[in-house]
C-alpha cells in the first residue's frame, strides 16, 4: 500500500505540536518561546493541510495561508515587543518579567 493515512498525517502534526508545546514550557528565553509558538502554529497548519487533503478541498490550504499571515504579523509584533523588553529589562528571561503577581 503506497497511500498515506490521514491518521499518520495528523499524528505527525500532533507530535510537532507537542514538541512546540514542550519548547514553550521549558525555555525561559522569550525568543525561544516565540519560536516554539511558531512551531505549534505551523503544525496546526499541517493538520489543516492534512484535513484539506483528505477531503480534496482547497479550504485546508486557504486556512494555512491565513495562519501564515497571522504568524507573520504576530512574529513582527512579538519581536518588536522583545526589543522593547530587552531595552527595559536588559534580559530576555521570561521568568524575570514577573513584577505583577498575586
Amino acid at each position: 500500500m503506497n497511500e498515506i493515512q490521514v491518521t499518520s498525517g495528523l499524528l505527525l502534526a500532533a507530535a510537532l505540536f507537542m514538541l512546540g508545546l514542550i519548547g514553550v514550557l521549558i525555555r525561559r528565553n522569550i525568543i525561544f518561546m516565540l519560536v516554539c509558538v511558531e512551531i505549534m502554529l505551523n503544525s496546526a497548519g499541517l493538520a489543516f493541510i492534512v484535513a484539506g487533503s483528505k477531503w480534496t478541498q482547497p479550504d485546508g490550504q486557504v486556512m494555512f495561508i491565513f495562519i501564515l499571515t497571522m504568524a507573520a504579523a504576530e512574529v513582527s509584533v512579538g519581536l518588536a515587543l522583545i526589543l522593547q523588553i530587552h531595552h527595559q529589562l536588559k534580559t530576555l528571561d521570561g521568568d524575570a518579567a514577573n513584577s505583577m503577581r498575586g
Binding site: L21, V24, L25, I26, R28, M33, G94, D95, A97, N98, S99, M100, R101, G102
Partner: peptide, 17 residues
Amino acid sequence: FSYTQSGILRWYIMGIV
C-alpha cells in the same frame, strides 16, 4: 489560588496545558 498567580509566564502556560 493566589499562589498560582505567580506572575511567571511559563507557569500560566502550564495552567493552560
